[in-house]
Write a protein that binds this DNA or RNA. Structure first.
Lengths: 230, 230
DNA sequence: CCGATCCGTACTGTCAACACTTATGGGGCG
DNA sequence: CGCCCCATAAGTGTTGACAGTACGGATCGG
């Protein structure tokens, strides 16, 4: 009936949260720069209330930092921040992988294996392939709703942001596939210890790779735009 | 200058967050029951705006569950929830402990050791002792701001809630002290692997103990009050 | 010419009211 | 007598306006 019901039937704040993440991701708002509640409200044609809630959630997941009465700032993409984030992810997703090895049904494991291979083929043949996220699938299978929520929900938004900096090159993609395959193998073999260990190594490696390209100063995406409120 | 500056100079929403956590902790609002924005606003003598933000944060840390337009509910204290929380904590605090073993200064480690023993003495002699939280200290020393924020900030509020259910008995307190001591030893010896492993065992043990007393149906605190809005 | 102080501006924090959605209870129909 | 439908009410989502605070620049004194 209402205009809200047409799209998603989700509160504005929720949608705004996603949209703000997107414009940060797009580089329109540079890391370290400030974001303005009123301006965002005007931009999205809503009041400041929902914007405020979205910004608050952004603060909750640590994407922006803010102290009372001072303007909210998008966190900087310093190497240190990235490392911290990946340490957290290593811990959490390692645990998720351990739990997945204990809880994942054989059917789901088989399906994931099939999808993994299918995905490999698709990017081998050059097709873009539909969004396949091995990590999300593992996390989803761990059965711990709190970890799922954290990793696939809020934290996932952060990973997306950082991933911008260093797109995987071909070599890493192949390596990642192999590591994924080994992880899944450990899960299928019901070896939680090994599964966790391998997942942690896998993430640590990704982190190390990220830090390396970062130190080299390779990407530094353009971050064009929004000097004032234009 | 202003009335706000007298107390904390922190926004109302922040204070409300703490206050609501407290009244949930006190048992005044039973797990599983609903909480009412307007009622809370009236109770604390503020508008619904700040209350809304606080509730939103509560949802963010998973203390209450809520879907659009439906009443917010305090999460139930089911065994499953507790286990999930402790799994998360095991992962995160294990990592924190590993990092602490790498980063903690020798001075801080020595200080912590002293405080640990001091605390042991105080509760051996029956004194209540000032608040000494070994885990918080470890987390603080890990150096990862994101993990610190998560573990000592939001998640800590949840642990407080769950801790109500099973107060440590004497035996466990002694065991906990010994485990703490061993963990600290591993940190002082700069053995991250061991430190993490021991911390995880320590937390898993606490979790198991919690689940056991829970299954036995021992505590079931009274949760007196607030059937409607009386 | 440089520094400190004062003031204006822009933004955040807060509030009270309005719009919309979901639950609840009663009445009609099978 | 039980089930479905509809009106009512309670509560959440959203809005616009008001109050207080921090930053930037102009003015004044050294």
């Amino acid at each position: 009936m209402s205009v809200a019901a047409e799209r998603d039937a989700q509160p504005l704040g929720e949608k705004l949260f996603q949209q703000i993440v997107d414009i940060i991701n797009s580089g329109e708002i540079a890391p370290g720069s400030e974001l303005n509640e009123a301006a965002l409200a005007q931009r999205f044609g809503v009041s400041r209330g929902p914007v405020r809630e979205a910004v608050r959630r952004l603060q909750g997941i640590g994407l922006i930092s803010r102290e009372p009465y001072m303007r909210a700032r998008v966190i900087s993409l310093e190497t240190r921040e990235v490392i911290e984030l990946f340490q957290m992810r290593e811990a959490l997703e390692g645990m998720a992988c351990r739990l997945a090895a204990e809880n994942m049904s054989s059917e789901e494991a088989a399906r994931l294996l099939a999808d993994l291979e299918s995905d490999r083929n698709s990017w081998t043949t050059g097709q873009p392939s539909r969004a396949f996220d091995f990590h999300s699938r593992i996390v989803e299978a761990c059965g711990n709703r709190r970890i799922i929520e954290s990793l696939n929900g809020d934290l996932h938004q952060l990973f997306r942001l950082y991933r911008r900096k260093s797109g995987m090159d071909r070599a890493r993609k192949i390596a990642a596939y192999q590591e994924h395959w080994q992880i899944l193998r450990a899960i299928i073999n019901r070896d939680p210890e090994l599964a966790e260990s391998m997942m942690r190594s896998h993430i640590a490696r990704a982190s190390a790779n990220l830090a390396r390209t970062d130190d080299a100063g390779v990407p530094q995406i353009n971050w064009s735009g929004t000097p004032g409120q234009g």
